[in-house]
Design a protein around this nucleic acid. Sequence first.
DNA 1: TAGATTGTTAATCGATTAACAATC
DNA 2: TAGATTGTTAATCGATTAACAATC
Lengths: 234, 234
Amino acid sequence: MARLKKPDPDAELNMPQPALRRLPQYFGYLVQQQEQGVRIISSSRIAEDLNLHPVQVRKDMALTRVSGKPRTGFDVQALIDELARMLDYNNLKNAVVVGCGHLGSALLNYRGFQGYGLNLMAGFDSNPELIGSRVGDVPIYALDELDSIVHENHVQIGVITVPRDHAQDVCDRLVGAGIKAIWNFAPTHLFVPADIIVQNENIAASLSVLSKRLSDQQLRMRSGQVPGDDRDRS
Amino acid sequence: MARLKKPDPDAELNMPQPALRRLPQYFGYLVQQQEQGVRIISSSRIAEDLNLHPVQVRKDMALTRVSGKPRTGFDVQALIDELARMLDYNNLKNAVVVGCGHLGSALLNYRGFQGYGLNLMAGFDSNPELIGSRVGDVPIYALDELDSIVHENHVQIGVITVPRDHAQDVCDRLVGAGIKAIWNFAPTHLFVPADIIVQNENIAASLSVLSKRLSDQQLRMRSGQVPGDDRDRS
DNA sequence: TAGATTGTTAATCGATTAACAATC
DNA sequence: TAGATTGTTAATCGATTAACAATC
């Protein structure tokens, strides 16, 4: 049984945003390592595989309150359990997906979200052919039924996968139905009341970062310099 | 014609990563504003709509070298042009998509990438029914043809949208074919040579941030506090 | 024991915010 | 002119990295 250091719930609530983004990375990586039979792992090994600084890994691991053992490393299972608890993966949150085209279907077909605490329990679409059918085992409804489904199932999260021009409209309906948070995959900026949380998937931003890293590297190569260090800052 | 300040190519190469991630956000927002007829915009207006700090917006705008006019604001068209140039949206980069399931199809069907400098010019899949067909006007090939297509078209970017278990294998083949950068949508960590750029879409990380923001807000609500400020740190 | 690894404090680095001058 | 907005320097804040002690 891995030991935990004295709890500090404050640190957990005030988690630095960059650290918070790394935790799921560690989680996925550790699960993979575990599947391959790894039971103990060192911070330097994690750092190397994930292109991070070893000290940063240890600092992040300190957030989990799991103690590593000098000379051996960290207990993989203990880290996985703690990360899951911190990220609230054990409390399934109900969510609905609005827009069941290719992207919405991809999300509905991906069973992995359950492992990350998300339960996609209904889809919505305006296409009459889809309404009443199922996508990846999830039933598809007409938008008329949004309010009742959201209320009956205490749905907290709405996922928007409709085309850009309908996104704000869908967003307004989700907010009207009482949703608390929106995961937006539409390439547009949404306007919401102050108490509603919006997380933009912003695929273009990610692409731009990739594109810029590529351009910059090529510039450096051409000017005969070494390729920049490859630490992951995504 | 909007004035540009004296060029500083160095600042552009050493762009802070957080700023780089905000630029495409500005770009998308400004394009939308322009479509609605907005020609001049103030930093405070941008800041308000995007949940950023006005000074930060001005600092970011300074990176574009576009000068604003006191009392009026910035020329929307000039900002759009400069952002497009900085983000290299005008040089179309060829890319291939490996894995033409729901997610791959969603990407291939999305025409918007052209506006962000990305040309998805071929898809690859192992499904014989797909091979030889088209998805969103893009031809689908067997993986055997990866090398020749990549070489003939100087493809620099590979997009991975295959299931987790095949991602590393596909990655190796892309690298072998001479690709320089990988945009990875598979929920797994890829191991690549040092000179290859990997950008993980990491949908679980994004979901975790959303989930944590929601949990934290609800904790604060229950303990009778004000909902935290909603500045966008995504 | 010696040596490898963790864990923590201090130093550095970098980004954000504040303050205020410049400008139209 | 007065006032609103930009632009820049300085201060603050926060995250990363370095240094080194603690531990097995």
